[in-house]
């Protein structure tokens, strides 16, 4: 899109209904835009055409008399101008064009150039609002203790100390978790540490890496397995094991 770099700050066009290979929108390895540039360019070009058409319709002039520069649409003969934002609502109601000519690479203004990222200045000043920074009027915070065993349940909680602690509003007892609600997360979490919780681990109480490994070994010894081996050569043979491991991010959010 001939949008000025800043004008494309909110990439609405990235969500335009352009048919994609298997509806894939990969994000890994910073490949999002690189591997999708045709889609992205088409979406941008389509959005530009729609914006120009909307402006032309408002001025009742042919779209071919309009040019675009840095997010501003200009009607050449009358020198009238409109910013993208001023016609965005009208443009959004138009049918996306089917035939979307792409700009010749020799006329590229942004594509193919290394642009400075727009988010960085705020980030070096600690300004972006992350989930942990959101504060709503009257908002309370909770810290949660969940049953350490999947499928287990809460048996009993002694919250007598926690309930008297500063800022604590409520102790919530529910199926497989307890939560302390307080006026700040730190206070909720301090009180949570003071709960005396008894869990009923239930049927999974005795599950361990050993029992899981044994279950997998038994599965491989299943008499039906030779049958499965005939279907595909890739049925694993019990030669090595890895422990069950959860993927955890190193930070919230």
């Amino acid at each position: 899109m001939t949008g000025w770099w800043c004008a494309s700050r909110v990439p609405k066009w990235a969500r335009a209904p352009i048919p994609r290979w298997r509806n894939w929108w990969p994000r890994g390895g910073s490949q999002g835009v690189r591997s999708s540039q045709d889609y992205v360019r088409k979406a941008g070009a389509a959005a530009r055409m729609m914006l120009v058409n909307a402006a032309a319709a408002r001025w009742k002039v042919p779209a071919t008399e309009c040019t675009v520069e840095r997010g501003v649409i200009t009607h050449g003969p009358s020198r009238r101008r409109l910013r993208y934002g001023e016609v965005a609502a009208e443009a959004a109601r138009l049918q996306p064009p089917q035939d979307i000519p792409l700009r010749d690479p020799k006329d590229w203004k942004i594509a193919g150039k290394s642009m400075h990222r727009l988010d960085i200045p705020d980030k070096v000043m600690g300004r972006p609002v992350f989930g942990v920074d959101v504060a709503l009027p009257g908002m309370l915070h909770a810290s949660i203790a969940q049953c350490p065993v999947f499928g287990g349940k809460l048996k009993s909680v002694d919250a007598s100390v926690a309930e008297k602690m500063r800022g604590v509003k409520k102790v919530v007892r529910e199926g497989d978790f307890v939560a302390v609600v307080a006026d700040s997360w730190w206070r909720a979490d301090q009180a949570l540490q003071k709960l005396r919780i008894e869990w009923d681990a239930g049927a999974n109480g005795n599950v361990s890496s050993e029992t899981i490994a044994a279950m997998l070994r038994d599965g491989l010894a299943d008499p039906k397995l030779p049958q499965a081996r005939k279907v595909g050569p890739n049925i694993p043979r019990p030669t090595s094991t890895t422990p069950p491991w959860s993927r955890r991010p190193a930070r919230p959010g």
Partner: peptide, 22 residues
């Protein structure tokens, strides 16, 4: 204003998500 490090952080585009950067 900006500390010289903050300027360099912008110049070298250091942050990704930014969470750890401050």
């Amino acid at each position: 204003g900006l500390h010289p490090l903050q300027e360099a952080w912008i110049e070298h585009e250091v942050p990704q998500c930014g969470y750890c950067q401050t």
